[in-house]
Design a protein around this nucleic acid. Sequence first.
DNA 1: GCCAACCCATACGTTTTTGGTATGCCAATG
DNA 2: CATTGGCATACCAAAAACGTATGGGTTGGC
Lengths: 295, 295
Amino acid sequence: MDLRRLRYFVAVAEARSVGKAAERLRMAQPPLSVQIRKLEAEVGAPLFRRGTRGMDLTEAGQALLVRASEALALAADGIEAARAVASGRRGRLSVGYMFVLANAMLPRLIPELRRSVPGVDLDFAELSASTREARVLDRSVTVALCMPAINHPEIQVARIGAQRLMLAMPTSSPLARLSSVPMARLHGRPLIALPHPDHGPASSAVVPLLRRHQVVMPIASRVETVHSAMSLVLAGEGFAILPACAQLGAPRGIVFRPLRDATDSLDIAVCWRRDAQSPLIRTFLKCAERVVAGL
Amino acid sequence: MDLRRLRYFVAVAEARSVGKAAERLRMAQPPLSVQIRKLEAEVGAPLFRRGTRGMDLTEAGQALLVRASEALALAADGIEAARAVASGRRGRLSVGYMFVLANAMLPRLIPELRRSVPGVDLDFAELSASTREARVLDRSVTVALCMPAINHPEIQVARIGAQRLMLAMPTSSPLARLSSVPMARLHGRPLIALPHPDHGPASSAVVPLLRRHQVVMPIASRVETVHSAMSLVLAGEGFAILPACAQLGAPRGIVFRPLRDATDSLDIAVCWRRDAQSPLIRTFLKCAERVVAGL
DNA sequence: GCCAACCCATACGTTTTTGGTATGCCAATG
DNA sequence: CATTGGCATACCAAAAACGTATGGGTTGGC
């Protein structure tokens, strides 16, 4: 059973005439007549009553007509839907994000996305440092907002901004009275350390920073997430060196201060599978860049 | 866009491999590969990700898959529905009946039909003597249960039975005491006359019957329907000569008696358009015959 | 009552499309 | 490094569809 036959059939049924339908289909009348008869042979029953003034559907023809029209529309819709998905006008976008970026970015990113790609189903998921790479690779998220970027040959990275590192401490700390904290004042103070997912147990940016300034901070605790770090800071367990945007998720009782004479920063990056390159991802990237630009 | 392409596409998507799908479709792998690429060209975007271990749908491919499967199913269902209608397993049957037959036949005919053609939408309409022919011709009823048959070149008739003519009179009439009424006793009594739809104003069977027995009955009233006739009989306006089955619709106060030495009867017939010949009508005919046989 | 017009069906040659076979290319695997 | 598994390409043969020419039946006008 061929879709063209059904298309012809619908045309003839609507025109109630082979000749008229042939004209509308821009083809000759005889081949159309032949196709209709082939369809009837396939069904095994007449679909039209041939009158002297054209053709008229039989009951069997009417039964076929409704379904054939629907099938035609569905097939056309399928092609169109595939195009829309390929072009990024429709589809599904699963956005992974790391907690540090959530408070700074999501409130502006989500409306921006809904505006930019209104036909797309959006879905958001927090990523942990340890699983984010796997979530991108197995496509359970389409794109990931990361800090810092994922480093993997199959994953493509676009750096869309950076956040200065700041010192996080309890409001009660004596250092909190300074508007910015000299690196030297950190020497000897306890550090709440975050692992870096790629390069071992300590944050990739913090370790070189301390080394460069010849500051030694004993590691008071190792934690997995930024909010664990902030909890421990609030509890007075030590100091954390965190990207500026973490302030927005910080509980009362914690203050952030810039580090004097240290401009080190962590990259904000969008990461996705290299083979999933698509217009939708490009659009997402644009949105994320706009949001970061407004921070 | 061709339905075969969509079928191929679905097969490849389900098999997640061109080779496997080709096997299932009993064709060689290369032409299938070509068809898939043609479909992708038509859509304007890749539908599969080619990996080293087979093919995998892209998001656009997934969007197409759901609709393509549905379209396929609908097309197949359409063909099947047309066959079902043509074979009489499904469809619509509009049954017209004349009032005289309603009480005798419908209570047994309707369940019989529902059992015989469970997939068919049944619909019943009472026919008047004056419009029944037009209702068959314009297809507003598919078949008509008539008494007597319609006489028209475009209408086919199947006689399925007959009903003896009987005398209908008020219970109070002196003739009601007889178990059967000799024709001669009718002479001079008032007649409630029914028109015959084809042959003028008087019932085609009653006029010859009276003439043959040389009985003259003055016409007290002319009525259009059997129940009008019975109303007038009940009112004492006169006698009616009606088919036996009319008894079942008769109100209290009317009795029917056979006519002694007169076996005249009226035909029960099924009538339908000659060009609407169908298995469904044949099935209907069988049912109607069975019902009449059990009267 | 015959002829013209209309419409669908059939026949046949041409073109387009599709399927098969042979083969190439690439990546993963042992 | 060779082998295997899987998709893509090339080329040829077969099938299907389209167009032109034509037949046949019915309607409607003169």
